[in-house]
Amino acid sequence: MGNKKYFLLALLFHMALLVSASSVDTLIVHSKAMNKDIKNVVITPNGYGKKNTPYKVVYLLHGAGGDYKAWLKVAPKLTAYADQYNIIIVCPDGDVKSWYLDSPIDPTFKYETYVSKELVAEIDDKYNTVKNANARAITGYSMGGHGAFYLAFKHYDVWGVAASMSGGVDIRPYALKWGIPDRLGSFAENPEHWENNSVINLVHLISDKKLVFQVDCGTEDFFYEDNKRLHEKLMERKIPHEYIERPGKHNPDYWRNSIKYQLLFFNEFFNNHTTDQ
């Protein structure tokens, strides 16, 4: 009888853990800018819905060829991180090669507008969030690293803190790769599109030092030299930032390690800044 009672108590405890654990949902958002529905992963932490306290939000952008579920494969511990830091995590679908731009040549691609305006507004409407830039963070890997800085540099009224891992921060050297010409046109015919949409050329937008951000890239990554040049340009202009380079390639192992430290970086920012509604 005693063993049966112990088993029932253990089962109830296990069920309680399952009920209270973080939740992974798919949110479908209609983009008016592109006239289509877009899927997004939303992870809410343990206890969400039981408290009146609003939550900070971290947006994670995937790389070229990925989709809204890519981050769950890259970092399976995201649900545990949502619980650990008591945050909401949002993973948008950025198409396989949007580069998170509003394409100057293709009006059907407006992912800058989608993520920075439509998605943020929908998340703030559907979830109990702190509706304040100081309570929003954004990061991503590869194409998503470009996207995170591109969006944060241009919309630092939306995100107070940002990071990039293995980011394509200068797209100009890759004029024939990863579908970028589909978004910007050929470099030979539209050089201004490439100049105006490379993150390394947008640092003047944050020269007033409003944005807190971190650059992270492995020394064996094919984007390493681009990230190093971005760091040097920021240093020359005396724009505060964190810079990390360490052994590593352009792969999920590197990103899986990076996200642990970037979430800590974001958490410290959240704790040090006012996040009133």
Rank of each mutant, 00 (worst) to 15 (best):
residue 222 F to V: 09
residue 111 Y to C: 09
residue 97 K to C: 13
residue 57 V to M: 01
residue 244 I to M: 15
residue 246 R to N: 11
residue 34 M to C: 08
residue 182 D to T: 08
residue 166 S to T: 05
residue 264 L to I: 11
residue 212 V to A: 07
residue 58 V to K: 00
residue 52 N to H: 12
residue 39 K to D: 03
residue 214 Q to M: 10
residue 114 Y to Q: 08
residue 236 E to T: 08
residue 246 R to E: 13
residue 30 H to T: 12
residue 25 D to I: 00
residue 199 V to M: 05
residue 1 M to S: 13
residue 10 A to M: 14
residue 170 D to R: 03
residue 228 K to C: 04
residue 196 N to A: 07
residue 231 H to W: 12
residue 39 K to T: 03
residue 272 N to F: 09
residue 228 K to V: 10
residue 106 D to H: 09
residue 274 T to I: 14
residue 88 I to P: 00
residue 96 V to C: 08
residue 229 R to D: 09
residue 237 R to M: 12
residue 259 I to V: 14
residue 239 I to E: 01
residue 200 I to K: 03
residue 125 D to R: 04
residue 263 L to W: 02
residue 170 D to A: 06
residue 263 L to G: 09
residue 270 F to I: 05
residue 93 D to M: 12
residue 38 I to Q: 06
residue 204 H to W: 13
residue 258 S to V: 11
residue 139 T to F: 03
residue 68 Y to V: 01
residue 23 S to F: 07
residue 233 K to P: 11
residue 191 P to D: 04
residue 246 R to Y: 11
residue 107 P to Y: 15
residue 129 T to E: 04
residue 214 Q to I: 08
residue 169 V to N: 06
residue 175 A to W: 09
residue 245 E to M: 11
residue 91 C to A: 09
residue 189 E to C: 10
residue 269 F to R: 01
residue 37 D to C: 06
residue 106 D to Q: 14
residue 160 G to R: 01
residue 171 I to C: 09
residue 41 V to W: 00
residue 130 V to Q: 07
residue 234 L to R: 05
residue 41 V to T: 04
residue 181 P to E: 02
residue 142 S to Q: 07
residue 19 V to R: 12
residue 41 V to N: 02
residue 131 K to P: 08
residue 34 M to S: 07
